[in-house]
Amino acid sequence: MKRETEWETFAHEADVGVRGSGITLAEAFAGAAMAMMSAICDPARVAARDAVTVVCTAPNEEMLLVDWLNALVYEMATRHMLFSRFEVSIGDRHLLATAWGEPVDVAKHQPAAEVKGASFCELAVRQEADGRWTAQCVVDV
């Protein structure tokens, strides 16, 4: 039995691919965010303590995924935070989400690399034959 939200990274020669999947589009987006966090550090080391609200609007779902991941990159960079839990809702190409995390603690989190941005490389948002949603792209590290 597959879980509601699943995530993984996939190989790219220079950078890192991130992929989320879920029963809903929103769960797939949450999974993609978790995959991006896992490219930075082990999310299990990050306490879901402080909440940050993220809002995005885009002309299509693929652009919405890029915007969502880039909004998280921005929040991490300007708040000096890492995230480990996401709640996402999506309707009519509008995204409203809460990301939970805590300030970067290098000794505790052991972050390997910051993400510079989410790219359009390998970008795909699709509903699979089994009805589950997949959301993926390559992020530049």
């Binding site: 960079a77 510079k116 359009f120």
Partner: peptide
Amino acid sequence: GLGHQIGTDFLREMVL
């Protein structure tokens, strides 16, 4: 971060 965000901003605008 400044350069990364310029890339992010203009990639999106140029795609559209």
